[in-house]
């Protein structure tokens, strides 16, 4: 398997805190790959090491088959979690700058920038200053800066955070488009719904360690149809402590109960109906969301 990114036993230590602790995974070329995990799991640190912004204290990272170096950065597009643009520059000029520092000539960068601006309906704003743009438009401009130089690998750290649904779906389409034309996509998120829709493979990180890694469909299959959707009246707090229950995800109106693989949902129904008034009972495939919660020990990913 040709890999776009490969990590071997990578660790990063800040003082006495091991932010990333022996992480290994491979991102195949042409894939859409998700790094999932709760806040503080080590996602951003991992991504910064892939971008050669931080140096790992242990282990080895190879990107696009090479060891990290400055020339390599030209082939990688990067959208950091904390976004920033030169606010005083004009949009087209700013994009031209971002293209040029990726090794493009300025005319080439300008042409590409104008194409992208038109595609994202930002063409009329090209001569305006960045600070005049609305937040949504700035998100678009920032995205263009990352993809301008036709990267072989696009690294996105929490790309959808803070976006309205319109932009979310726009960027999802653009990312899929780029992927179809050969760009490998690596992104981190704690929004399981997005990851579930986009990713072919994922790695789940918690406390700096890999909890699960592999093809998303296979990970889900490992849990089988072992999830139960329940709606009821009464206090369902005891459900978490029943035998064979791995996790409970409370949505308020309903709960999703994740069972151990092979456990019998009928037993759960019997236990539950003895104490609660059941209004709905449905056996389903577990969502990535509930798997996530079960695996990282009940910490809410939205915390």
């Amino acid at each position: 398997m040709e890999t776009a990114v490969s990590l071997r036993d990578v660790a990063k230590v800040f003082g006495s805190f091991r932010a990333v602790d022996g992480v290994s995974f491979d991102v195949p070329r042409g894939d859409i790959f998700g790094i999932l995990g709760p806040n503080g799991a080590g996602k951003t640190t991992t991504i910064r090491m892939i971008m050669d912004i931080l140096r790992p204290d242990e282990g080895e990272i190879r990107v696009l088959g090479e060891r990290l170096g400055d020339g390599l950065k030209d082939r990688i597009g990067y959208l950091p979690e904390e976004r920033g643009l030169y606010r005083k520059m004009k949009v087209a000029e700013m994009l031209e700058f971002h293209g040029a520092i990726k090794g493009m000539s300025r005319t080439e960068a300008r042409r590409a920038a104008l194409l992208w601006l038109d595609r994202l309906q930002l063409g009329e704003w090209k001569e305006r200053k960045v600070e005049e743009l609305s937040k949504g438009m700035q998100q678009k401009a920032q995205f263009v800066a990352a993809v301008l130089a036709k990267p072989d690998l696009l690294v996105l750290d929490e790309p959808f955070s803070g976006m309205d649904p319109v932009n979310q779906s726009l960027f999802k389409d653009v990312i899929l488009d780029l992927n179809r034309t050969g760009t490998t996509i690596l992104f981190s998120t704690h929004q399981m719904e997005t990851a579930e829709k986009l990713c072919r493979r994922i790695v789940l990180i918690d406390h700096g360690k890999v909890v699960r890694e592999g093809v998303l469909a296979e990970i889900k299959a490992g849990f089988g149809r072992s999830s139960v959707l329940l709606e009821f009246d009464g206090d369902g707090g005891f459900l978490r402590w029943l035998p064979h229950v791995i996790g409970v995800d409370d949505y308020g109106q309903s709960v999703e109960v994740l069972l151990e693989p092979g456990a019998d949902p009928q037993k759960l129904l019997a236990e539950a109906s003895s104490k609660l008034r059941i209004r709905r009972f449905e056996v389903v495939s577990p969502t990535l969301h509930s798997i996530f919660i079960a695996l990282v020990g009940g910490e809410s990913p939205h915390a």
Partner: peptide, 13 residues
């Protein structure tokens, strides 16, 4: 403070 730094470091040392 305006977080341009990290974008720049994604393109250069």
């Amino acid at each position: 403070s305006n977080r341009v730094m990290e974008v720049l470091l994604g393109s250069m040392s």
